[in-house]
Structures are given as C-alpha cells and as structure tokens.
C-alpha cells in the first residue's frame, strides 16, 4: 500500500519519492546505489529529526492516521485462534466494537476493541469507530464472560468518542458507558488496557478501566478532542494546536500525570510504517504486563484497581497532603 503522508511529513515524502524514482532508474542498468544510499541516510536523519519533535497536534494527526493499525490488525498479528463474538443480546450488533476470544501464545484471553475503518466504505461500516450503546453493552457482556471463565481481558482503545446521535440517546449512551465503568471496576480478572490510536473521552474510558494502562507512543487520550476544545473554549476551531498542547493528551504527558503506566514505543514515522514491528513490541508489552498481574489473586487485583483510580485527581486540601490520604 502506498504511504499516505501528513502535512508535516512533506519533506520526508519528497525524499522518499526521490529514492523510489532512483530505484526505478537503477533497474534500467544505471548504477545509482551510492546516490540511493546517501538519500536513505538523509531520509533517516530527517525522519528522526521530524519525529523526535512532534507537536501534540501532529501526534494527534498520527494517532488518527488512516493507515494506522487498528484492533483487527493487532488481533491478526498478535493473537491466534480468534473467534469473534457478536451482539448485546438486547438490540443489535455494533461493528464499532469488536469482541471475542483468542490465544495469546498458550493462554486464552478475551479481547474488546474499538474498530475504525481505513477508507470510506469501511469507515461507514464501523461508524468511524464511534460506538452506540449496543456496542458498549456487547463489551460489557464479554467482560463478564472473561470474569466467568477467569481469563484475562485485553482491551484496545481507538475511538473519536461515543456516537452522539438520536438513537444513541434513546438507547441510553450514558447508561451504557456508566455500566461498563461499574463492571470493569469490580471485574474479578486481570484487565490490560492499550490505547492504540485515539482515546476519545467517555467513549474510550468505557472500555478503559484496567489494572495496567499501556499506550502507544503516538496515541492520544483526552477528555475532549482538540477541535471540540478549541471550538468551545477558544471559540475558534483553528486553535487546535494550542488546544492539543493545553489538554496534555500525549503518551508522555499522561505518563507524567500517572494516568497510564507504560508507553509502547512505535517505529519512527508511526505504527503504520512498520506493522510487524509495532505488533512485536506490543505483544511483548502485553505478555510482560500479564505475567506481572497474574502473580496476584483476583480480590487483590480488584482492590488494587480501585486504589489506582481512587487516587487520581489533583486538588488542595488544607493541612492534608492528598497523596497520603487514601
């Protein structure tokens, strides 16, 4: 597949296109290997330079890159024996959330993840990764299955948010999300959450309460999109740069705020530039977290999970240090 370049990647695009041109010329018999080598080196330097200094808004664009690997890519490359489970047994099957059972090496695990499309057709099918209540209720049902069979639950977050529509409200979007927070907080099995792309507010959190929160290097996680924030607080949709920076939505920001536990490094240029590599790295991260969590029994895990979220928040309390009083 041809790479889709973002605006800030234009200089890289030019160089990479030159390399492709030269490679094609090389096929006609000319010796261009030295020139190609030189250009490759230049491209590497440029990539490292650009990608080591991304602004939060640029990271947001990478997190939403149309070619960015999604839940189904990780399922296909990290797990085996995947069997998809459908429907909430109440209303419908929501394709914006994928759920099922699979093997992670020798272990059976349950998987829940948002799914976006990669083109117009698939985006319409998956509703751009924006679930309806039935999607969250399917997720809630599968969470309870994981608990019943004492298998770990792995969730993958990649959504602009829960869908804001008439049907979604009629069927209780707020209730559906709240119920999942409720269920996850008391679920008697290990939960590992990975933010793989876009973590859009309550629609992301609805599958995001876990014991370990991993986050891909170029993923974002926020209470509101930079566009929404700019429109409401700056009253200017163009202030997305400032909004993205102010919201502190990058993996590095969130690690500092102790909202996530670990950053999964991505290949230079983003996860989509080398899907095999990101899958290998993520698999290692998941396996490591899982073996750590499996040292504890389920009641310890639930208690630790409660304390993990219990201590989140920053405020001033006279005479008492809020870090201590839990």
């Amino acid at each position: 597949m041809e790479n889709i370049y973002l605006d800030f990647e234009r200089p890289i695009e030019e160089l990479e296109n030159k390399i492709i041109e030269l490679t094609n010329e090389g096929k006609t018999g000319l010796d261009v290997s030295n020139q190609i080598k030189k250009l490759e080196e230049q491209a590497n330097i440029l990539r490292n330079k650009i990608f080591s200094h991304l602004t939060p808004w640029q990271v947001t664009q990478l997190a939403r890159h149309p070619q960015r690997p999604g839940t189904t890519d990780y399922i296909a490359n990290i797990f085996t024996n995947f069997i998809e489970l459908h429907g909430d047994r109440r209303y419908a099957d929501d394709p914006a959330i994928i759920a099922g059972i699979a093997s992670l090496d020798e272990q059976t695990v349950f998987i829940i993840g948002h799914q976006k499309g990669k083109d117009t057709k698939t985006n319409l099918r998956y509703n751009f990764g924006m679930p309806h209540p039935e999607g969250y209720r399917k997720a809630g049902r599968v969470m309870k299955l994981a608990e019943k069979f004492k298998k770990p639950l792995l969730t993958f977050i990649d959504t602009p948010g829960a869908y804001p529509g008439i049907g979604a409200e009629e069927r209780g979007q707020g209730d559906a999300i709240a119920q999942n927070l409720f269920t996850m907080s008391q679920l008697k099995t290990q939960i590992i959450v990975t933010i793989i792309g876009e973590g859009g507010s309550g629609g992301a959190l609805a599958i995001g309460v876990g014991d370990k929160i991993l986050m891909l290097e170029n993923a974002v996680y926020s209470v509101i999109s930079p566009e929404g924030c700019a429109a409401i607080l700056w009253e200017d949709k163009k202030k997305v740069d400032s909004a993205a920076a102010t919201l502190r939505l990058t993996a590095k920001n969130l690690l500092e705020l102790e909202v996530i536990d670990e950053i999964i490094p991505e290949p230079v240029g983003g996860a989509h530039r080398n899907i095999d590599e990101i899958c290998r790295t993520l698999k290692k991260g998941l396996s490591k977290s899982l073996s750590e969590l499996q040292k504890h029994n389920s009641s310890t895990i639930v208690l630790k999970r409660y304390k993990k979220f219990r201590k989140m928040g920053q405020f001033i309390e006279k005479n008492i240090d809020n870090e201590e009083k839990i």
């Binding site: 709240a178 927070l181 507010s201 309550g202 959190l205 996680y221 926020s222 209470v223 102010t246 919201l247 502190r248 939505l249 969130l254 705020l257 909202v259 979220f309 989140m312 928040g313 920053q314």
Partner: peptide, 8 residues
C-alpha cells in the same frame, strides 16, 4: 484535561 475524565 484527562484528570476530569478519570473522575468518571
């Protein structure tokens, strides 16, 4: 920011 989401 994110901390308000975590209050949910």
């Amino acid at each position: 920011g994110i901390m308000s989401l975590m209050q949910m």
